[in-house]
Design a protein around this nucleic acid. Structure first.
Length: 271
DNA sequence: AGGCAGGTTCTTA
DNA sequence: TAAGAACCTGCC
């Protein structure tokens, strides 16, 4: 099916923004995996995109996945170039990035794996994990098989040798513990949607292998609470160098997470 | 070849 | 409570 998008929307920038690890350029378009859902999306006009899914699947899932109900151009417009020239430049540079609405479980495991790894290594580990379980979910135009992201039960049923083969390193025990706790129902990520911000953070930090940074990524990219502001080495570098007097968090509430994405994306290519 | 990569846990004062 | 070290692995 074909859609028209009248807002910031840049597939390449989204793919490179570091919030998703199974969103890749492929031929003329991009392959996207979200849990066990596969999409091929291609830009075919100024604002027009061709999607491999049906209209029902678009309306029922992908529209929300791409956060198309929120105007990112309007949010960028709130940035005053005279007041904060660095953020303005970052937002211009990152124009087209959106915060995807991703799955809670997939984000939790993905960001547990992400610690002290670079993006290519994170992607490689996740793909190995998906292939290890091997539940086929799609096939790219180039004929590559794509596998569903494993459920908690599927990971819990793997051996530690299986996990070690996914290059998880010392994170293997974090992944396994999370899988067992979710599979058993002891941890119910969905029900945590009802918690307030502080309560949600508290719960996430109780998980083995989850610290403040990973918890904030889960809150921003999984729970889609757009005010979460994950601080990694890149963002800390920006805050230290560009905002010695402090970033104006109050001004952008409740959308600081979107500003974080612009700053992160900009910093990775300019610092 | 040794250091480091989108952190977190564990150990020590 | 707060620093500092240790940690898997892959890639310069």
């Amino acid at each position: 099916m074909k859609i028209t998008i009248n807002d910031d929307f840049d597939l390449l920038k989204i793919a490179d923004s570091g919030q998703c690890f199974r969103f890749n350029a492929c031929g003329e378009g991009f392959t996207v995996m979200a849990l066990d859902k596969y999409l091929f999306i291609k830009k075919v006009g100024e604002k027009e995109y061709e999607l491999s899914c049906s209209e029902e699947e678009y309306e029922g899932f992908w529209k929300e996945y791409f956060d198309l109900g929120l105007s990112y151009s309007e949010l960028r417009g709130r940035i005053d170039p005279a007041e904060d020239p660095y953020l303005y430049a970052a937002a211009e540079y990152g124009k087209g990035i959106r915060i995807l609405k991703q799955d809670l479980w997939e984000m939790l495991i993905s960001f547990i794996i992400s610690q002290r790894k670079n993006i290519p290594a994170i992607k490689a580990s996740i793909e190995k994990l998906c292939a290890k379980v091997g539940r086929k979910a799609g096939e790219t135009p180039e004929g590559e098989i794509l596998y569903a992201f494993p459920t908690a039960k599927e990971i819990a049923s793997l051996s530690m040798e299986d996990l070690a083969a996914c290059s998880l390193g010392y994170r293997d025990k974090y992944v396994m513990k999370a899988a067992r706790e979710v599979a058993s129902g002891y941890v119910d990520l969905e029900s945590w949607k009802d918690l307030d911000d502080a309560g949600l953070m508290e719960r996430l930090l109780e998980l083995f292998g989850v610290g403040v940074k990973v918890a904030n990524c889960e809150i921003l990219f999984g729970y889609h609470r757009l005010d979460a502001f994950p601080k990694d080495v890149w963002i800390n570098r920006v805050l230290d160098r560009q905002y010695p007097g402090g970033f104006m968090f109050d001004k952008y509430t409740p959308y600081n997470g979107i500003m974080q994405q612009y700053l992160f994306f900009y910093s990775r290519t300019t610092m």
